[in-house]
């Protein structure tokens, strides 16, 4: 997995996606560099998860390109990882779950054992190593999902709402793990609709609304004063921000027509 070529930066050009005649991702342009932790925020249905899945290559975009720095498709695929919103645990033990993707990467057994032990310890679930993964609590499963991607030492890690259904203690633990993964040099791209979490983790914020990327700014200046009016409303927690959304969409549609 020691890839000589860095797969970042990741470049999205003109990416659109539609399903059932509805455009869910609209003309996305952006570039992700290796260093900062990028957090994508936005209301439900903004297309955050879809955006991550398109970047990760799980869903092909209808138009546009997802371009990595490394031209080797296999190396790009194996040097990134994603924690899905609802991670699926394989019907086997906790440690076998971490072994699985390493086996797919044909890592020799001795090396695998160290990686798995490391990940188990770092994620704080070493005592659960022989438990069947499916009977763990949600919080433990989330930690296992993180340990599983951690062991891969990916260059990029996508996280889709990693703490969506966790209590504060488990959320804290998961955030600590994310921080540690980042400290080891992994690029973090994650979604959340928890603003406090975004403030805690983000180096930069991407604000999405109805399939569009409306604003991108360093975290500090974004939370100080977002430029986009919708983002302002969202950050302030105004409940009626979606009314603004309708006006906004009409405006942009008009612009598009003219």
């Amino acid at each position: 997995m020691k890839s000589p070529t860095p797969i970042l930066p990741l470049k999205l050009e003109d990416v659109s996606f539609e399903a059932g005649g509805k455009r869910l991702i609209k003309d996305l342009h952006c570039t992700f560099d290796a260093e900062p932790r990028s957090v994508i925020i936005g209301p439900n249905g903004a297309g955050k998860s879809l955006f991550l899945k398109i970047c990760h290559g799980l869903i092909p975009p209808h138009t546009g390109h997802v371009q990595w720095n490394d031209a080797n498709e296999r190396s790009v695929r194996l040097n990134q990882a994603m924690m899905l919103q609802r991670p699926v645990m394989l019907r086997r033990s906790v440690s076998a779950n971490i072994h699985y993707p390493l086996k797919l990467r044909k890592i020799p057994k001795s090396e695998r054992n160290t990686l798995v032990e490391d990940a188990l310890t770092q994620a704080g679930i070493a005592r659960l190593r022989d438990h069947p993964a499916r009977v763990l609590s949600i919080g433990e499963q989330q930690k296992l999902a993180l340990a599983r991607v951690w062991a891969l030492k990916p260059q990029v890690l996508f996280l889709d709402e990693p703490t969506a259904s966790l209590d504060p203690a488990a959320t804290h633990a998961v955030e600590e793990i994310i921080r540690a993964i980042h400290a080891q040099g992994t690029k973090i791209i994650m979604t959340t609709h928890d603003l406090a979490q975004a403030k805690r983790i983000a180096d930069e914020i991407l604000f999405m609304f109805r399939g569009r990327l409306l604003e991108r700014a360093p975290a500090a200046s974004f939370f100080e004063k977002p430029e986009n009016d919708l983002a302002q409303a969202f950050v302030k927690g105004e409940l009626l921000w979606w009314r603004l959304g309708k006006a906004h969409r009409k405006n942009t549609d008009k612009q598009a027509n003219t």
């Binding site: 899945k53 194996l78 990882a81 699926v88 993707p101």
Partner: peptide
């Protein structure tokens, strides 16, 4: 249906 995204994300393909 349940596993597809997860397995592909972990690096599997339909054969593996």
């Amino acid at each position: 249906m349940e596993y597809k995204d997860q397995l592909l994300s972990l690096g599997a393909n339909p054969v593996s």
